[in-house]
Design a protein around this nucleic acid. Structure first.
Lengths: 343, 343
DNA sequence: GTGAAAGCGCTAACAG
DNA sequence: CTGTTAGCGCTTTCAC
């Protein structure tokens, strides 16, 4: 037989209520009673039933976390940040993977809603079905989007200045005189791609140059694609002197292709990624990239969520973290830039 | 006001019980009743309360997953496999990160137990406090360890033949004539390190050679260490012609160090890792490594757990998946070995 | 300081 | 095929 409050109450002669109070460190309990009950609870190996508690108190101290892609280390680092803050604030995480499928994402939200989570941190899937807005508008608990935004819900997001980040990348290359820049951009229908493409445009504009579409490709974001697209560009004699990648995974694929084609980096081609993953300084050469505060992104998202849970009246407000171009060996030295060599 | 079974019951004139039956697709309900109730539930936007249901049915369809290290892509891939099977079998995942801290791991188990999870999949933290055995022996739900085992609980593990894997690595190198092999092994107190070291010993024995301890180091398993230890070995003029790494992260660090020291791979030094992470084929050169079925490891662990949940009487049995040395550019061609080039 | 009573929303057991 | 009753284990409210 499992020990419950009732068991302890019977064993000590106090009421269930008193036992409950002691175990929740409620006030107005005599020190003696408290110690008797605590001891007995310990002795009987009492494990509180959080399910029963939640049913009554309407608080689960559980949040739903939905990742767009478990296999992407970017999201892993974000989740690490969410986990840290969740742990600090006393929340457990129910986690799901949408696989970049909007419908699956909404399905997971409904499932977690059934489980009465106190709120959500989601890395929303990209797509075009346009139902995210209405859907999220209708859910009865607070929610924060980490690293992306969806139209009409931007105030629910923690972001990292995609536009400025990519602008600084192109600005660097254009100032160095590059004119044929292979741009392996991200998936369409996602805020990051949209904003980074805008940053790219802006950089070209300020140099009074028109970007050439034949150098621009939209990929979904993995290493294989970076490898194949770069191979393809080389095979088709598309001349380029730099490659800008939507993320470091694509860049890793590009680097591989360039090495196999005997193009030296950064001598023949400069390569720049985005995200600054843990592996990026260890690529050969070390990858120049935009450093996105992934862990902090998750941490802040959870922090803000916690505030909204505690105070449901609080207004939502877009949060922008800063990101910054970080130079390593895949680009040529440039003394005008701040240089941070890693490792 | 939130809609509950009661709301629907009142709105349709049926009893709460009947409504409950319809919504659970219970038998013995007339088609007409069923459709009336379903329609009403839909209309009112009914969201079932899984908390209340669990309290009564003693089943949460939630499992606890504990990762030893969120930031390690090995575990991410395992979790991907757990997630896939959990999703298929209708479970949600409560997830936690022990950070390789045994006490934190047990704390998480207790927390999840409070939340009445139906079972656990854990990647146990390593350590020496020897309390894991007693602790796990006492928990009231099924549990499976993925990728590692703890003494006395081996039958609860899904493994991947660490001993054979490492033996094949050393056997390959010894057969090629290497005699000074730098071995960057894993953390002590973890089954994988223990078993792989045993495999190493076995390979040396079968070649009638005594391994030299000055070539053997135990690291905790990240890229920085691989980089530093390799640098250090070079600085200290420790002569070696091959590096064997406990995992691909260490190998990536070693590769970086070798490149910076102008040692060519595989010409001057052959390098072999362990795990076969997604990034490994994209290293420069592509990394020869032992391919561990990470996704399958997670999938199987969840599958077996599900069986134990459904049938608590079922006996536990160690499960061994196969792993296999996979050749890429970081080793010299060897026609006697099966070669699989990636990408 | 402590206890009694009610009920969170649901499912199980039994009736008919 | 449907309804009634009880109760999962806890917290809340009110009483004294």
């Amino acid at each position: 037989m499992r020990t419950t409050l009732k068991t302890i109450a019977k064993a000590t002669g106090f009421s269930i209520n008193t036992v409950s109070r002691v175990l929740r460190n409620d006030t107005r309990i005599s020190a003696e009673t408290s110690s008797i009950i605590s001891r007995k609870a310990e002795e009987l190996g009492y494990i509180p039933n959080a399910i029963a508690s939640s049913l009554r108190s309407l608080r689960t101290y559980t949040i739903g976390v939905i990742s767009a892609d478990f296999s992407n280390p970017f999201f892993s680092e974000v989740i690490g940040g969410i986990e840290e803050k969740a742990h600090e604030a006393g929340y457990q995480m129910l986690i799901g993977n949408s696989g970049e499928d909007e419908e699956k994402e909404r399905h997971l939200v409904r499932l977690f809603l059934s489980r009465k989570v106190d709120g959500f941190v989601v890395m929303p899937a990209y797509g075009k079905d346009n139902r995210h807005f209405d859907f999220y508008s209708s859910i009865p608990v607070p929610y924060i989007f980490a690293g992306r935004y969806i139209n009409g819900q931007k105030s629910h997001s923690i972001l990292h200045n995609d536009e400025d980040g990519e602008e600084s990348v192109f600005d660097y290359l254009l100032r160095r005189g590059h004119r044929n820049i292979l741009y392996l951009s991200g998936p369409e229908g996602i805020s990051n791609t949209h904003d980074r493409d805008k940053g790219m445009q802006k950089a070209y504009s300020s140099h009074s140059i028109q970007p050439d579409n034949k150098y621009i490709f939209h990929l979904s974001g993995n290493m294989e694609e970076g490898y194949q697209k770069t191979n393809q560009a080389i095979t088709q004699n598309l001349e380029f002197t730099a490659v800008v990648c939507f993320n470091d995974l694509i860049a890793m694929g590009a680097l591989k292709s360039l090495a196999e084609n005997n193009l030296s980096v950064p001598g023949d081609v400069e390569v720049i990624g985005y995200d600054n993953l843990k592996i990026s300084p260890f690529m050969e050469p070390g990858l120049t990239t935009v450093d996105v505060p992934k862990h902090k992104l998750g941490y802040e998202a959870m922090d803000v969520l916690d505030q909204h849970i505690s105070n449901p009246e609080m207004a939502y407000e877009t949060n922008n973290l800063t990101s910054k171009l970080l130079f390593r060996g895949s680009t040529v030295d440039d003394d005008q830039q701040e240089r941070i060599r890693q490792p």
